[in-house]
């Protein structure tokens, strides 16, 4: 996936939500996106995944190349991402591969693998409507993985999860990258980005203002805030081990 001088505005908006963004996302990598509310992180995901302007309307200028049509997207709110047509988790997860018309056995195999990846096999026979937000979000991610996407974009995918569930989800992303998927994940959670992403894009006012490894571009994890407030010179350590390594004893 590559963008060159991409600018995008939603229909009826006076100012573009994405401004002159150029970047390339490689297969087999996890790229993080972070920024304040309204900075354009969600819009970047929609444009990078090819969903805007195709489904949202609006106008895109600049160049965009997406080298795959197998693209998955996950939002923070699981209930908007259910088909509403399935009464079991298995049927929900199988919906995607089934819509590609793949043989029954292959659909069920993809479905089983995705349920295992997210650790929700035990929910396979439950009604999605009876699940908690956290369980549902894992089912939603499994539903998208069952499509075996080559480009996966996730918008704050752990907002509904408890810490253990969020850790498990973020630990899965590098594993997906190892299998060849290009992963693009937006979240305000810089702690988890610092641990998961090889590269982080920081956005402000629709532009990508910083782009590089987490240690070079992030400065607002709690540990970084502690270090800054305690007089540590930049670049600030992002996690506990890095901070301890910077202290002269």
């Amino acid at each position: 996936m590559a963008l060159d001088a991409a600018t995008f505005a939603y229909p009826g908006a006076r100012t573009p939500a994405l401004l002159d963004v150029s970047l390339a996302i490689e297969a087999g990598t996890v790229t993080g996106v972070t920024g304040a509310v309204g900075a354009g992180t969600s819009t970047l995901l929609l444009v990078a995944g090819g969903f805007a302007p195709r489904l949202t309307g609006g106008a895109l200028s600049g160049r965009r190349d997406i080298a795959t049509n197998r693209i998955g997207i996950v939002f923070a709110t699981p209930w908007t991402q259910l088909t509403g047509l399935a009464t079991t988790v298995r049927a929900e997860v199988a919906f995607g591969p089934a819509s590609l018309g793949r043989p029954r056995g292959s659909v069920l195999a993809a479905c089983g693998a995705a349920l295992r990846d997210l650790g929700v096999e035990h929910l396979a026979d439950r009604d999605p409507a009876s699940l908690s937000g956290g369980e549902l979000q894992r089912v939603v991610v499994a539903s998208v993985l069952a499509m075996e996407p080559e480009l996966l974009v996730l918008d704050d995918p752990a907002a509904e999860l408890d810490p253990a569930g969020a850790d498990a989800l973020y630990a899965l992303l590098p594993e997906l990258a190892r299998r060849g998927t290009a992963v693009l994940v937006a979240t305000p959670d810089s702690e988890r980005l610092a641990r998961t992403a090889e590269r982080v894009l920081v956005m402000e006012g629709g532009r990508v203002t910083r782009d590089g490894p987490p240690a070079a571009v992030l400065d607002d994890t709690d540990v970084a805030r502690i270090a800054r407030a305690a007089g540590c010179p930049a670049p600030y350590p992002l996690d506990v081990a890095a901070l301890v390594a910077r202290v002269v004893r």
């Binding site: 240690a215 709690d222 805030r225 502690i226 270090a227 407030a229 305690a230 007089g231 540590c232 010179p233 670049p235 350590p237 890095a242 390594a245 910077r246 202290v247 002269v248």
Partner: peptide, 18 residues
């Protein structure tokens, strides 16, 4: 808390780079 931790770190010496 972040500010309590930073205060407790006051006076510590830092290495210049990570």
């Amino acid at each position: 808390r972040v500010e309590d931790c930073a205060a407790a770190l006051g006076g510590v010496r830092w290495r210049g780079t990570g």
